[in-house]
Write a protein that binds this DNA or RNA. Sequence first.
DNA 1: CCTAATATTAGACTATATCCAATAGCCTTC
DNA 2: GAAGGCTATTGGATATAGTCTAATATTAGG
Lengths: 130, 130
Amino acid sequence: MSNKNNSMIDANIKCSCKGYNLDKLLQPNILILLAKKSLHGYSIIQALEKKDLFFGEKADNTGIYRTLNKLEEKGMIRFEWELENTGPARKVYHITDEGLTCLSNWIVTLESYHKIIEGMTEEAKLILDK
Amino acid sequence: MSNKNNSMIDANIKCSCKGYNLDKLLQPNILILLAKKSLHGYSIIQALEKKDLFFGEKADNTGIYRTLNKLEEKGMIRFEWELENTGPARKVYHITDEGLTCLSNWIVTLESYHKIIEGMTEEAKLILDK
DNA sequence: CCTAATATTAGACTATATCCAATAGCCTTC
DNA sequence: GAAGGCTATTGGATATAGTCTAATATTAGG
């Protein structure tokens, strides 16, 4: 019982306005990490968790692995299996030249996105302060 | 002929790094518009087109109407049919108290999003300038 | 009457991310 | 040596946001 109107409750508690459904920008974030250093998926997850990317929530492993697969398909990153180490086999990813070009495009895109969001925030503040 | 590797071509031309798949933040943008003034859907489309929201691309009508329906379901906005005017009937939307609360939450969320994006841009620049 | 502008809706699809579950190797500890 | 925990990756189903194409309907202008 008591799960009626669950969608109503969710709509209030998990409203987008609190950041729940915001794009986590995984593609550029992963490219940034790999531009600094080659890493395997699990360490990418840990690195992303350290960033304040997820509004206090844990990173979703599955989503990160899926993004890695997509970036690999697009030729932005490549991997080799690493079997020498202890533990299960891991894919070690490194960025390609295409990935670096993509990252430099991201800088331009993020800068204009940054401005758009700044403008929105200022506008919203002006309205609500009235 | 010549449509093989279309996905490859799309991946290069329409890569996310050029802003194609960025969240347009329609919900807060619509709330901002309606906090200033009640409007019907079509004029919201036109107002959003004037903003530099879509990276030079046209706003998508369908998406905006869907967002309006969603905001209405969540109780953030309400509408009345306006039949008096010339032309086809139009839904005139106005923001509710819940919508105003939602918008004030959006300010906080957008400010932290703003910081995250700023940090990413700076980090990416540092790496690529090396 | 035809067309363009206004105004809204529906279906199918893509992109991004989430939730839950499964698999599999290795290590510690009881 | 069995049990549980950490490392590491994958798959299915779902949610959210947005796009593309098309359809419907009213009215004004030529």
